[in-house]
Simulated scan of single mutants.
Amino acid sequence: MATQRTGMSQGTARGGMAVSGWTLFAAIMMVFGGVMAIFEGIAAIAEDDVFVTTRNFSFQWSLTGWGWLHLVLGIVVTLAGIALFSGAMWARVVGIALAGLSMIANFAWLPWYPFWAIMLIVIDGFVMWALCVGPSRDARA
């Protein structure tokens, strides 16, 4: 039995907004990266001896300050990732901006926890790429 096309893509949400596979991927990665940043922030706020600090680094901010920054940024990134499940264009734009901010924050975080920071930078790069691909390209595939 052949299916009829109704003008809506297969990845259409109930609200009428297209949720492509790439948008879904970006939403999941943003929620994952945001939760990781929340844990990173909590660890930096709670225990200053968890992280090793280097001397004479350009970004001389207290570890507790970095912890609060990552905690707040992680919460906002997680909420934006949840909003991406709706497929709204504003959520895509906010997601790209927040992924960029998260990349910058994690680049500055490299001296304290390099492996974790690099992992979050890579996740944010994939999120930005997935959000820039857009639903129109995914619908053609």
Rank of each mutant, 00 (worst) to 15 (best):
I42L: 13
T54A: 14
T64G: 10
L69G: 04
V94K: 02
A83T: 05
G11K: 14
M30C: 08
L98G: 00
L98S: 07
G74E: 02
T23W: 11
R14V: 15
L71V: 06
L79S: 02
G100I: 00
R14I: 15
V76Q: 09
N106F: 00
T64I: 07
A83E: 07
G41M: 04
R55E: 13
V19R: 08
A108H: 03
I45K: 04
M36F: 10
L24A: 10
F107E: 01
D49N: 01
V52L: 11
V77D: 03
M89N: 12
I104T: 03
V19G: 10
N106H: 06
A83V: 10
V50S: 07
L98A: 01
M17Q: 15
G87M: 01
V31R: 02
Q60I: 02
V77F: 01
T23Q: 15
L71F: 05
V19Y: 10
T64V: 11
A99W: 00
T53C: 14
G15H: 12
L71W: 01
G65K: 14
V72Y: 07
A46I: 07
M103E: 05
W109V: 04
V76S: 01
L63G: 00
A46Y: 10
V50Y: 12
F39N: 09
A44H: 03
G15W: 05
G67Q: 01
G95C: 09
M36P: 13
G21W: 04
M103L: 12
G87T: 08
F32E: 09
A13P: 10
F59Y: 14
S62Q: 02
A80R: 05
I104K: 03
G15V: 13
F59T: 12
N56W: 15
T64R: 06
M89V: 13
A46N: 08
R14N: 15
W61K: 05
G33F: 13
G95A: 11
T64S: 15
A99K: 03
L24I: 13
V50I: 14
F57T: 14
V77P: 00
I96L: 03
I28L: 13
W66G: 04
W68F: 06
G65T: 06
G67R: 01
A37R: 11
W22Y: 08
F51H: 06
F85E: 08
F51R: 09
F107V: 11
A91M: 15
T54V: 15
F32D: 03
A26S: 15
M36I: 10
W66C: 02
W22L: 06
F51W: 11
T78P: 06
M36Y: 02
S102W: 13
V94P: 06
M29Y: 03
V77C: 04
V77H: 00
V52I: 15
M103S: 14
L84M: 07
S58H: 09
D48S: 15
S62G: 00
G74N: 03
G33R: 01
D48V: 12
A44I: 00
L73E: 00
A43W: 00
L79A: 08
A80Q: 08
M89W: 12
T64H: 10
G21C: 02
